[in-house]
């Protein structure tokens, strides 16, 4: 996938710096991420991103590219900041009063934290799927039609019907729900609800889809379906997924980023990270020594 990875300069220190150890001991503030944070065809590009919750420094100097049409998985122990980082990418953190973001995050070269940029079209371009399925308490049809309606994507009822069918088909839910589109989305099973939420997100044709632990509330069969879906969506969309399951990260992603206490410790090709981690913390985490 990332052709840049092989061409990356190996000048960076692959060896952990002194003072880094297992467990919760913080890394130095000037810590440099191991691995190549940049890719050739980046859809989103983050430079020196810092997030503060009041006094708490939650994300520390993170540089990261998110490559076009690939899945990047963000892993790390609880509280490491991976979800916070994900929520920066479509400015969902704006809804939290005490949260402050600095640094630059660009979508297709446009800084999304630019004062002049309107957050509403941004979120239509960068959609999000949440940890817990959160369908609107409306009919299945209205759940999907909600986004297209508010953005005026359909000129007629027929077009709207098409969008709904297309989105549900892409999310692999159409055959299961086509006979009961007028029934409440909250009446579906957990796995179906989550696929409904994914369908709702792709109905507004975003470029990037952020997924915050999308399978953590689902059973293994539903999880398998959603993972399959993520793999299919990669053709048309760029996906960033936060997950607690390393198997899931290994199954669905092409690149993996390992976060630790607000630092982006290591990033690289998924196969590379899981077979040959270069940083001690990454190795400890994926071999299950802590986390």
């Amino acid at each position: 996938m990332t052709t840049a990875e092989s061409a990356a300069s190996e000048a960076e220190l692959p060896v952990p710096k002194a003072g880094v150890s297992i467990g919760s001991r913080p890394l130095d503030d000037d810590f440099k991420t191991v691995g190549n944070v940049r890719v050739n065809d980046a859809r989103m590009s983050c430079t020196d991103v810092n997030v503060f919750y009041g006094e708490k420094h939650a994300i520390k100097h993170v540089d990261l590219d998110i490559g076009k049409n690939q899945v990047i998985a963000m892993i790390g122990p609880s509280g490491c900041g991976k979800s916070t980082f994900l929520r920066c990418l479509n400015r969902m953190n704006d809804t939290i009063d005490v949260c402050r973001v600095s640094g630059a995050i660009a979508l297709d070269g446009q800084d999304i934290y630019d004062k002049k940029l309107d957050v509403v079209p941004l979120r239509a371009q960068v959609g999000m799927v949440f940890q817990k399925p959160n369908p609107f308490p409306k009919s299945i049809y209205d759940n999907i039609a909600y986004g297209p309606r508010i953005h005026g994507l359909a000129a007629s009822r027929v077009e709207l019907d098409e969008i709904v069918e297309r989105s549900l088909t892409k999310a692999g839910l159409w055959d299961e729900v086509k006979d009961r589109l007028d029934q409440p989305g909250t009446g579906l099973s957990g796995g179906q609800q989550q696929r409904l939420c994914i369908a709702r997100t792709i109905a507004v044709e975003p470029e990037v889809i952020l997924m915050d632990e999308p399978c953590s509330a689902l059973d293994p069969i539903a999880t398998a379906k959603v993972e399959e879906l993520i793999d299919e969506l990669r053709e048309n969309y760029t996906i960033a997924i936060v997950t607690h399951s390393m198997q899931q990260a290994a199954r669905v992603s092409q690149r993996t980023a390992y976060f630790h206490l607000g630092h982006l410790v290591e990033v690289g090709e998924t196969t590379e990270i899981f077979t040959n981690p270069r940083h001690k913390l990454t190795e400890d985490y994926i071999t299950g020594r802590f986390g």
């Binding site: 809804t95 079209p121 979120r123 239509a124 371009q125 959160n134 986004g147």
Partner: peptide, 17 residues
């Protein structure tokens, strides 16, 4: 629930929508 607000905002809805 906040999750419903989040869902709507994440689809690019404005506050009033």
């Amino acid at each position: 629930p906040q999750s419903l607000r989040d869902a709507s905002y994440a689809l690019g809805a404005t506050r009033s929508e």
